[in-house]
Design a protein around this nucleic acid. Structure first.
Lengths: 250, 250
DNA sequence: TGAGAACAACTCAAGGTGAGAACAACCTAG
DNA sequence: CTAGGTTGTTCTCACCTTGAGTTGTTCTCA
């Protein structure tokens, strides 16, 4: 039987129910470490575990809108600041037993945000917090969220290579050093400052100069850094490749 | 309200129904052109239009299994040949009005197959055929399938850059020239034969020599080509970048 | 048997990258 | 106020990869 036959004979009331949710892997950088927005579950299953923010898709919204709404609800964010958050679809997860209660297909999304105020606990009874990704073991996470987070992190690392999305972790104006710190944090190892500088300025459309400089030098000295804003490129050509991982044969 | 509240209060019978389907963008190369597996719809909506093979996810199967089942049903393929087809998740499509009948969230998949026999029209009443991708206008396609196909093609082009998946369009043993033809077909422009040869052999784990050669030279002459099989790399380092696209500013 | 085609190897110039050094602007400690 | 350390930015240089073209050999077809 194929789609059209199914649909022709379909009655929602007697078909096995499938729920569709959107979950969000929201990343930000705080104090030099990559953080992740998580919610502590207050009810079974997985009571007391951490879970990704998410919920049902509503009848009138598309998947991206649902994800943005969930993000807004959990961060208390709105308006211009919410609009500056990068949001993209990550992947869908639909193992039959990923949720013990019923069949749930989750469409996971990935978000990059600049450093945000702590989630307002006002709207929701949830405890929503930004946690360093290194502080998590998969045992503390609900459902298959550990796997979703792993996929999100790998996607984030890879996106920094060939898109200018690293700028989405920063304020609209930033220095090259701040941009380098984003790469170092997400990739997890230091980069050569001089080469990074040369590369960023040589890729067309990655950043554009504002003409201005920072008010002060660095906290421990050094000259004032020039300020840049994101350019109009959507893809980096040539890409900024991360150093070759160790050659593990699988 | 969040996920756990929703689920706690959830009764499948009174929640607005959402259907989850899997669709497959299956690509192969025939006669030097990229072909796509499509089904002609025999009933409204979009009667007479072309649609991707797909259907409902069954209660006991995960998303990838559903996609593979749909592919098997439409191609009449099974066993070893089916196992050699590369299948990966592409993206999910869930605009509220993408299907006029009801809310349908489709989890699209992408498949790379070697040249296969024509779909057996036996199992199904459908007319399932391989069509050249260039022969299609979006007007002839049902639902949002034109967009799904576009996304699939772009994903395929990009996957050839940094994975060895081009080999999945070929038989287990192939020549470098056949491999180059895959790249030229998917990317849509000719490559420098000498440089391609050098590059493929220099990337570790891309191909490995079988020691054998073809029985005959090319159809119009030339020496016998050496035969290779896919290596064990899952990622190409360094990648095989496609020539820079024209620098269009968006 | 000769012409044309295709595989495989080579050469060479141009450009990108990794590593290190130079230098000036700036902060803090004393 | 100054010395010493820190940081942003620019250079240099060796190395590697790439694009483009050439050469030599093997093969099919007419």
């Amino acid at each position: 039987m194929n789609e059209q036959d199914y649909l022709a004979a379909y009655d929602p009331r007697d078909y096995p129910a499938v729920a569709v949710t959107v979950d969000v892997v929201a990343l930000t950088i705080r104090e030099g470490a990559l953080h992740l927005l998580l919610i502590r579950r207050g009810a079974p299953p997985y009571e007391g575990h951490w879970a990704l923010p998410g919920g049902f898709v509503r009848p009138d919204e598309d998947l991206a809108a649902g994800a943005r709404r969930e993000l807004a609800e959990e961060t208390g964010l709105g308006g211009e600041r919410l609009r500056r958050v990068h949001l993209e679809q990550l992947a869908s997860y639909g193992d039959p037993d990923r949720d013990p209660r019923m069949r749930v297909v989750s469409v996971a999304h990935l978000a990059f945000a600049p450093d945000l105020p702590d989630p307002a606990a006002g709207t929701d009874a949830d405890e929503a917090v930004w946690l360093p990704v290194t502080a998590l073991t998969s045992r503390q996470l609900a459902f298959d969220h550990a796997r979703i987070i792993d996929d999100g992190l790998e996607r984030a690392r890879s996106k920094l290579e060939y898109t200018p999305l690293a700028t989405r972790f920063l304020e609209p104006e930033f220095t090259i050093t701040e941009l380098r710190a984003v790469y170092e944090t997400v990739w997890g190892h230091p980069l050569h400052a001089g080469n990074f500088h040369r590369k960023v300025l040589s890729v067309p459309g990655f950043v554009e100069s504002t003409g201005a400089s920072t008010e002060r030098g660095g906290a421990r000295g050094g000259p004032r850094a020039r300020l840049y804003r994101a350019g109009d490129a959507r893809l980096l050509h040539p890409a900024l490749l991360r150093p070759a991982r160790e050659e593990t044969v699988r």
